[in-house]
Every structure is written in structure tokens, then in C-alpha cells.
Amino acid sequence: MNLAVDLQLICFVVLGVAMIAAALGVVLLDRIVYSAFLLGGVFLSISGLYILLNADFVAAAQILVYVGAVNVLILFAIMLVNKQEDFTPLGNRWLRQGATAVVCGGLFILLATMVLATPWALDTTVVIENTVVQIGRHFFSDYLLPFELASVLLLMAMVGAIILARRDFVPEGIDPLTRQEALTLPERPRELAGTPSDPR
């Protein structure tokens, strides 16, 4: 046992405990803002685990994508909606919580037995020096199809988001009365951007 191995073990225990505690906080806390912030903590701990596994690029990408983009957007949504509503506690709530606990516990036991039963093949080859180059090679050789599929999926999501955001586009030459039925989605009517407001 030398210093580096000890340090690695300590880091692993600290990161693991932090991740599990934060994840439990995400699920169990009542206030949604706390859950969102703790979710950022979970993502950060996961990236710490990636660093322990020598996957430096994946760790940095994890922080950039999940903490910097996904979590910030979740927080944005929560803070912009900011709906104050007191939920009345339902009767027989313990039944739901008990059922959830049973399902989650069952999943946990299933995964735990799978982890223990699988004979994991340990990779004893030398540490990869330049992870970025390796990831790039894999993306453009044996993982080409999943990589391209993921990019197409992201492109579809982006196009969809733009269409949703630009829903207030008004085609010209259509009678405003017929347009009301034809082109609106079932939602609260709002002022159209870029068009003069209705005199009515």
C-alpha cells in the first residue's frame, strides 16, 4: 500500500458517500430547488469517479454537459415557473411511498446480485496516455453508428425546440378569424410577437 493507492481509496469513499447522499437528497427532499442543486452535486461526484478511472475527458465533458447545461436549464425552469402551491397531503400516502420503496429496493437487490454474480474482466493493459485520441478513434470506427444516431437525435431535438419556441409564426394572407381555429395549439392565447396588437 503506497500513498497514491491510499489516496485513491479515500477519494473513492468520499465521492461515493457524497454521491449517494446527494442522490438521496434529490429524491427525498420536499423543496424542488434543493433537489435541483443536489442533482448538480450528484453529477459532480460522478465526474470525480470518472477522474479516478483515468477518464479525464469524460469527466470534463460530464461537468460541461450535465452541470453546465442540463442542471442550469433545470434550475432555470424551476426559477422562472416559481409556482407557490401548497399540496394537501393525500390520504393513504404511506401506501404509495411503501410501494415505491418496495420497487426501488427490489431494483437495488436485482442490480446488486447482478454486480456480484458477473465475473468482471479486469483490464490489466497499460493506462491510455491520450484519452481524447482514443475516444475519437472509437467514435469513427467501431462506435460510428451509435455516435451518428446520437447526433441525429440531438439535431431532431434542436429542430423540435426551435419549432416549439417559434410557435408564434403567423403566415400571411390568412383571415385572422379562421386562423384562430386552424393554427393554434390548445393553450392560453398570448400576444403575437412582431404583429400589431389586435384592436378588439
Partner: peptide
């Protein structure tokens, strides 16, 4: 190895 990328990803924590 990830050098400058680390800076980009770390600076994305600040908005939180």
C-alpha cells in the same frame, strides 16, 4: 491532456 477543455467545463459551474 484535457487542458483547455477543463477550463471551459469548470467555468460552466459558476452559473449554478
Amino acid at each position: 491532456n484535457v487542458g483547455i477543455f477543463l477550463w471551459i467545463s469548470l467555468s460552466s459551474i459558476a452559473p449554478i
